[in-house]
Design a protein around this nucleic acid. Structure first.
Length: 107
DNA sequence: CCCATGACTGATT
DNA sequence: TAATCAGCCATGG
């Protein structure tokens, strides 16, 4: 791996505004890595820097992607988002049409 | 080098 | 609307 790839991913995630979310695919696209959403997920799992708001990255269905073996990190992520004003529907999913980060509208 | 395993996605059924 | 499938690619055994 050429850390520059991961660095670009972290740079994009760092630009997600408070109260907004982005999908793995969206982050991949903005990081100039179209179709490599999976790589974004891998980069986040390897991330240790707490200054990167990685809790604002969710999957394309609007759900929080689960970690291995019932980790409670998922619930922590959900709570962080709720604190920022992000709403979850009865299916545990975020209405992307309302909270999705739009580069030219939000920022 | 081969194979399995993921914080994934979009199209197809 | 939900389940499947085929791409995707870094890591570790």
């Amino acid at each position: 791996m050429t850390t520059s790839t991961y660095h670009g991913i972290y740079a994009v995630v760092s630009r997600i505004p408070r109260g907004k979310v982005a999908t793995y695919g969206q982050v991949a696209l903005l990081a100039n890595l179209p179709g490599r959403a999976r790589l974004v997920g891998y980069a986040l799992s390897a991330l240790t820097d707490p200054s990167v708001p990685c809790h604002r990255v969710i999957n394309a269905k609007g759900e929080i992607s689960r970690r291995n073996g019932g980790s409670e990190a998922d619930e922590v992520q959900r709570h962080r988002l709720e604190v920022e004003g992000v709403f979850f529907d009865s299916h545990g999913r975020i209405p992307l049409e309302l909270f999705r980060w739009r580069l030219y509208a939000d920022e």
